[in-house]
Design a protein around this nucleic acid. Structure first.
Length: 939
RNA sequence: GCCCGGGUGGCGGAAUUGGUAGACGCGCUGGAUUCAAAAUCCAGUGUCUUCGGACGUGCGGGUUCGAUUCCCGCCCCGGGUACCA
């Protein structure tokens, strides 16, 4: 017994080895990144986690392991690597917990961070922990507030195509009014310098708010009564809140917003220069939703009694089809509807509006197939033909997109076609030689007909000509529309960044820089006030202390994406008290070379951080305008749930193969009670009181076999695998390699612990290359064999190539092949094993550090060894084994010298007896010889 | 509907430029070792087979001496998005 225990220790005592090296790395700050270095820099970043109470499961570290291997690889290649980690520590779960328990979210967050840190440390990451950031720390959010101030103090100058200080705009207003101003704004009117200078302070500020990049506006927001807060569009899934699945309604509120629309075009074109997957770029492109076309005005016939004639503006992507317009449709909510409706149609229109408003956005979408609408009795004048066209209202036109009105071209748009057919409206065909009897013609090809000056032109030319005519005749202008909306930036929550804003006479004023950070005041409860004010309104004057200014502080807090939009910059200079990042450091580290994280952030974090980066670039604070050069989305690791089958209304469980004989309900069973699908019946009985007296119908061999299913890992499915227990059982090196071995990084794949033994055995084999059974070092000095050199260099090449293309799974395979071959060769040669250890150290750092020392080197230096150099000479072979095919089917192998010419190879092959057999006396029609590859004989 | 991915043994997956399909690992089968079990080691493992071979990468076609790989048409799965004018 005692001997056996010793024997195991001698073999590969990963627990002791890993604990020692973790301590060594921490004490020696082995992975500290140097801010000043002659080496080229490389920045490897993970999306920092929100520290939730549930801790990490095996899916979380997948990306961290990949990025860590890559960071270590880059160090070996001679780069000065920045590889930091931190916490996105503001967020709703800690606040919800505070509401339930009264515990301050700061305490909850600190506890969770400690737990995360402990879990992360166990996996042996090479993070530079001295650079840790937490978005909820005042040292950090001081600068989030500072960036907000910069946004508040800026507007977007369209002519210069960049953000500019608002003081330049004020100077222009004072000197010349807004006549020459070309800025992104919601303001459409004009004023002179004299008018501006006569404005009251309140009026001036109201006007400026319409230009600022961070601004206050009454906006329709997604209000979630259950959470007592506003949600961003991407925090809503299918009309319900992403967190908690609560109902969301529309509400008009005074909110902070970010004028991200100003950056729509640059966010789009910037995608071209960065190495992200096509699918992710597509998601962002769709989200920004650029459409090119024209805005065209139609005048309402006869006007409105006692007022100027109403002019309806529409947006169209097909100005070339303008002669196909046979009616117009307004959204039921369009402001002109009541004015233009004739007395004759008043009742019908009112009824239609009422029924449309009852339908929620969701109902409308679900009801796409049903065509509905109502004629208003009014007509508009076609700008070119002068014909009268009917004006309808219909709920297929959305008030929130474009101008809330469309010019309907039934021959060229399927929805318009359906609408016209349904209501028997005329369909004008303006396409040459196209039949539109059955459906609209939506292709952008062919020629336009029946269209005055556009007739005979191709669609492409007609578009240009149409826009030209529209502009010269004053009916409108070429225009580009974006689906992207400005982002609401305030939340009625407690656990977020307070705004550096106070109000005086209801006007917002910024807190001075030297008074930042405005820290969170304590409150008695983490809920909205009785009057529906945010939780910060509960803070007493004492709680605010000397931070209190003006009539009151801003009671909102910033959304989750505020802190995460710039955190990658703070890692470069985490302790700087005077700047968010120093110029010198941001110029050295520059943007992120490799960013790894989930694709669920495609339209949130990844868009907002690009926006802020472009803004900070415009203001001259940073030298780049894209934050993440290369992005990899790691796939999800799915859980493998186990099921037992209970027969209905009993306490009797049926084994998997017999469950069909009964009426059963599948019940999730904790995966820790199951091994290789076999249920530990005693443990199951003990797991819950209700199972104590359970009865079982077993397999014929007396076991209970569980069913299984692959699904998302979650507590409620009892399929969560934590990394901790695996590190305990197999070691961090095994876990790291196994997670990589599961499959391609980007792919979703099921978690299955069965295979982990294979990887663990691999590491034991590595250990055995250096040790005998008693733990003695057995490496030999001297020249390595040719075979060993070939094995090593083949591996150097493959592992290096695999790393360069982020194929971590095949890298692990290649290590296994290498070690299998060296074991077969009985190779214990020191020079070979040393290089293997250096190569392997990025994947399995603990064991490699240990072996490196045992091979006689200084502790902690394996990571700084240069990546082994590949030498192709070792792979040169005298012979090549040719697969010989007949008509493309492989028939036999033939080993031939690599020096042979094509003709000589052909001769040798045809002379071979097996070839003669397949030829069966016939002459080959053709023989294809690819030297060094294959031979194919065609008969 | 539209836009992206993907479909290969019992399972996870490999095949990087059109050149031996199934590397590597798991699982399974048989054997060695053991009082026994675990662990370890060895051999086998795509399907069918009359043991010659035939078939085989979602389905149907095509290009090619040769196709998992390229082209055309379809089916299924995953993700994104949607009366976006």
């Amino acid at each position: 017994m005692h001997l056996q225990f010793l024997y195991i220790i001698m073999e590969y005592n990963f627990q002791e080895i890993e604990a020692n090296w973790r301590k060594f790395w921490a004490e020696n700050k082995t992975f500290a990144a140097k801010d000043h270095s002659d080496l080229p820099k490389y920045y490897v970043l993970d999306m920092f986690p929100y520290p939730s109470g549930a801790g990490l499961h095996v899916g979380h570290p997948l990306g961290y392991i990949a990025s860590d291997i890559f960071a270590r690889y880059k160090r070996a290649q001679g780069f000065n690597v920045l590889h930091p980690m931190g916490y996105d520590s503001f967020g709703l779960p800690a606040e919800q917990y505070a509401i339930q328990t009264g515990q301050h979210p700061r305490i909850t967050t600190e506890q969770n961070v400690a737990r995360y840190r402990d879990q992360l440390d166990k996996i042996g990451f090479s993070f530079d922990w001295d650079r840790e950031v937490r978005t909820s720390s005042p040292d950090y959010y001081k600068w989030t507030q500072w960036i907000f101030k910069q946004l508040f103090n800026s507007y977007y100058d369209v002519t210069q195509d960049k953000a500019v200080s608002i003081s330049a705009l004020i100077a222009e207003f004072e000197a010349k009014g807004n006549a020459n101003v070309n800025a992104t704004t919601d303001y459409e009117g004009t004023f002179t310098a004299a008018e501006w200078n006569a404005y009251s302070e309140k009026e001036k500020e109201a006007r400026l708010q319409e230009y600022r990049l961070a601004f206050l506006a009454d906006s329709w927001v997604n209000w979630c009564p259950a959470l007592g807060t506003v949600l961003a569009n991407d925090e809503i899934v299918n009309g319900k809140s992403e967190r908690g699945n609560h109902t969301v309604e529309q509400k008009l509120m005074r909110q902070w917003s970010m004028r991200i629309k100003a950056y729509a075009e640059r966010l789009l074109t910037g995608l071209e220069g960065i190495d992200w997957t096509d699918s992710l770029k597509d998601i962002q492109r769709n989200w920004i939703g650029k459409s090119i076309g024209a805005s065209v005005t139609f005048t309402v016939d006869g006007g409105v009694s006692g007022a100027d004639p109403r002019v309806i503006e529409v947006f169209t992507t097909r100005p070339d089809t303008i002669f196909g317009v046979s009616f117009m449709v307004l959204a039921p909510e369009h402001p002109f509807v009541d004015e233009i409706t004739t007395d004759e149609y008043k009742t019908e229109v009112e009824n239609y509006k009422a029924s449309a408003s009852l339908k929620s956005e969701r109902d409308r979408q679900a009801d796409v197939k049903n065509i509905s609408g109502q004629f208003t009795g009014a007509y508009a004048i076609h700008p070119f033909s002068g014909e009268k066209v009917q004006i309808w209202i219909g709920d297929y036109v959305l008030a929130s997109y474009g101008t809330g009105a469309v010019m309907a071209v039934p021959c060229g748009d399927q929805r318009d076609w359906d609408f016209a057919k349904h209501f028997g409206i005329e369909i004008i065909n303006i396409f040459e030689d196209v039949d539109i009897a059955e459906a609209a013609y939506t292709e952008k090809e062919g020629k336009i007909a029946n269209s005055d000056f556009l007739s005979g032109l191709t669609v492409k030319k007609a578009m240009k000509r149409a826009i030209h005519e529209i502009e010269t005749r004053g009916f409108g202008k070429g225009k580009t529309n974006y689906r992207l909306r400005d982002a609401v930036f305030s939340r009625q929550r407690y656990w977020g960044e307070p705004f550096p804003v106070y109000f005086k006479d209801d006007l917002p004023y910024l807190v001075e820089d030297d008074q930042l950070a405005i820290t969170l005041p304590d409150v008695d409860k983490y809920l909205p006030t009785e009057e529906g004010e945010p939780p910060l309104a509960r803070a007493t004057d004492e709680a605010w202390g000397d931070q209190l200014q003006g009539d009151r502080m801003d009671y909102n807090t910033m959304p989750g994406w505020a802190g995460s939009s710039w955190y990658f910059l703070r890692y470069m200079d985490p302790h700087n008290e005077n700047e968010f990042v120093s110029k010198e450091k941001v110029e050295y580290w520059n943007n992120v070379d490799l960013y790894i994280g989930g694709s669920e952030h495609a339209t949130g974090h990844l868009l907002y951080s690009r926006f802020w980066t472009k803004f900070l670039y415009d203001m001259g604070y940073i030298p780049f305008d894209e934050p993440f050069k290369k992005l990899i989305n790691q796939g999800m690791i799915l859980g493998r749930s186990s099921f037992v089958y209970r027969t209905e209304d009993t306490n009797q469980f049926v084994t998997n193969s017999k469950k069909k004989e009964f009426k059963t309900t599948p019940i999730h069973v904790d995966i820790s009670l199951v091994e290789n699908d076999i249920l530990d019946i005693e443990a199951f009985k003990n797991s819950r009181e209700e199972y104590a007296n359970a009865e079982f119908i077993l397999e014929d061999d007396g076991t209970y076999i569980c069913g299984h299913e692959v699904e998302k890992m979650s507590k409620s499915k009892y399929n969560v695998q934590t990394p901790d227990e695996l590190v305990e059982k197999f070691g961090a090196d095994t876990l790291r390699m196994y997670e990589m071995f599961l499959g391609p990084l980007e792919q979703s794949k099921p978690w299955d612990t069965q295979g982990i033994n294979g990887v663990h055995n691999f590491l034991r084999k590595v250990w055995k290359l250096v040790h005998d059974r008693n733990g003695n070092i057995i490496v030999t000095e001297g020249e390595p064999t040719k075979d060993a050199l070939k094995t090593l260099h083949k591996t150097i090449k493959k592992v290096g190539d695999d790393l360069d293309r982020f194929s971590f799974n095949t890298g692990v395979s290649n290590f296994m092949i290498c070690v299998n071959e060296l074991t077969d060769q009985k190779c214990n040669n020191k020079s070979i094993i040393e290089q293997l250890v250096v190569l392997l150290s990025s994947y399995a750092p603990h064991i490699c550090e240990e072996l490196w020392v045992k091979l006689g080197h200084e502790a902690g230096t394996v990571g700084t060894q240069p990546f082994p150099t590949f030498n192709a000479d070792h792979l040169i072979e005298a012979n090549h084994k040719y697969p010989v095919s007949f008509n493309g089917k492989m028939r036999f192998m033939l080993e031939l010298p690599t020096t042979l010419s094509k003709d000589e190879i052909e001769k040798e092959v045809l002379a071979h007896e097996t070839a003669q057999k397949w030829l069966d006396g016939n002459d080959p029609k053709k023989v294809i010889v690819v030297p060094g590859k294959i031979v194919n004989v065609v008969i």
